[in-house]
Design a protein around this nucleic acid. Structure first.
Lengths: 121, 121, 121, 121
DNA sequence: GTGGTCTAGACCACG
DNA sequence: GTGGTCTAGACCACC
């Protein structure tokens, strides 16, 4: 569990959890078949509510990144590199649609966006 | 008032208002000295509460984009093109810091981000 | 009429008027018997409402700084230097009671207040 | 909650709240990590509207004196004595600029102001 | 007429 | 239970 939780962030905790774990899976840091820690243990370690962890795990399962074996635990799905890359791009582009709509509302061209982005990155 | 409100959006209404009007000001669509509609009229037109409009206006004033004359109304601040450009970039880069932290968590390089961004834009 | 009006100030315009004129009288800038400009003329010059000027004049009269001669105009009251000094101190100390209650609420001693005041003055 | 609200004061209630709590924090009366009462409870105790309390809390957060954990409550920020002293002086000097402009308009020197201030304090 | 403030209630997401 | 948001109405000072 290499997770950083911010209680003061505007982002819900369950979403912080979801984003960081899905990122780790799609980066290949968590190999297929890897067993996620039990919900209760994760909740204790991260000092968050069990409900919060459960909500994040559910979201991961809904996207097919993990699967649950009742009574055994939750495991990382076996995905090919292509599938992982595709899922990663899907998730990012979905977010980018929201992000770019904001930039566009200010009348920025793609070139201007890239210029500003390089500064920030 | 060329504003589009989405009641289903996860974004608070007052923030939608704030973002759209600030974008219009910084794009130069609303000239300096331009009088914003009275908050009560705006509230009626947009079918939202007076307080919701007020909250958006307050945020605009806090950023120095408009100023209030009690008993008269709210007016667009007189800003030079340079000041407008700077304020615009500030607002966008502030948002970009959040956006890019998400991209980075997936291990993307700036080049990959730009590539995906061009597709989306 | 050597008056500076700020429309964006939080202070009501009539009070800005009142404060500046009473200050000028008590500083001796406006001599006794001096005729204040007619309300309509002052309103035009200062670009404020007649009602606003009237309200300020009324306040000045209430404090005995000016008196009205119906059909003739408003004139600065004849006060001795002692009376002027006393009225000035009254007005200022009345305001100081409010000001110092704020400083006191932060637990400042009179010495600390004086120290900070010297920086600001 | 050691707060005194005056409904007859010209000062808005939310500002009275803000000033008194910020003073208590910067005096060290409310220690870092201290949990402010829930806004609904505070509203009931102080016999004001929830929104009024919320407005005061928002201003406190904007100045970095408290931070909000959604679903948990609002807590006093951990500040060093230096930071507290600096913030205190900032707040007071900001007000002093307004106060002294009034004194100056009467032609008072800094020495005269200090003299009168000692009487009042 | 304008903005400034306030109320008393409501629904929601989060934990 | 907590804060986040929103509503529909009200009264006030100022101009």
């Amino acid at each position: 569990m290499n997770i950083a939780i911010s209680n003061t962030s505007e982002k819900p905790i369950y979403q912080q959890l979801f984003e960081q774990i899905s990122a780790q899976i799609l980066k290949g840091e968590l190999e297929s078949g890897y067993s996620l820690p039990p919900i209760r243990q994760a909740a204790t370690e991260l000092r968050v509510s069990i409900i919060t962890v459960k909500k994040a795990w559910e979201e991961l399962e809904r996207l097919g990144l993990i699967y649950t074996v009742t009574g055994k635990g939750c495991f990382v799905t076996d995905l090919s590199s292509d599938e992982m890359l595709q899922k990663r791009n899907e998730m990012i582009q979905k977010q980018m649609i929201i992000d770019t709509s904001y930039y566009k509302s200010f009348g920025l061209t793609i070139e201007e966006v890239i210029e500003l982005l390089k500064d920030v990155y």
